[in-house]
Amino acid sequence: MNCKTLLVKNQMLELNRVVAYLDELGEEWELSVPLVFSLNLVVEEALTNIILYGFDDQLEHTIEIDFKNDLDQLYITFIDDGIAYDPTLKEDPDISLSTEDRQIGGLGIFLIKKIMDKVEYKRKENKNFLILTKNIIV
C-alpha cells in the first residue's frame, strides 16, 4: 500500500501548495486525469471547510492529510484539532429547485459525498477525522 502525508496550515493560500502536491501524487501513483480532478475537488472542499469554519481561535493550526492507495481503493484522511464537526450529518441541498429558490452555497460537502464512495467521520482525542474512500475502477 502506498502512503503519503501532507501537512498544511489553516490558511487558504495553502491550497496552492496542495494543488501542486496532488499533481505530483497523481503522476507518482499513476492516477488518471479525471481522478486527479476529483481529488483536487474533494480535498479543496474538505480543507476549505476546516480552515474557514473549523477553528474558534486565531491561532495557527496544522491539518494533516493522509493519502493511501491500495490499488483498487484510494483513501484520504483529514485530521484537525478544531471544533467537533461531523460533515456527514449535513443535510444535502435540494438540487431540483429552480434558480430563484436555489440556496447560494452549501455545495461543498454534497460534492464530496457525490464524488467519493464513502465518507466517514470520527472524533478521537479531541481531533476530527474525516475519512474519504474512492473505489478506483481499473
Binding site: 480532478f37 483536487n40 475537488l41 479543496e44 472542499e45 476549505t48 447560494i104 452555497g105 455545495l107 461543498g108 460534492l111
Partner: peptide, 9 residues
C-alpha cells in the same frame, strides 16, 4: 479546467 463550490457559487 477546474471549478469548486466557491466558483459554482
Amino acid at each position: 479546467n477546474y471549478i469548486s463550490s466557491s466558483g459554482l457559487r
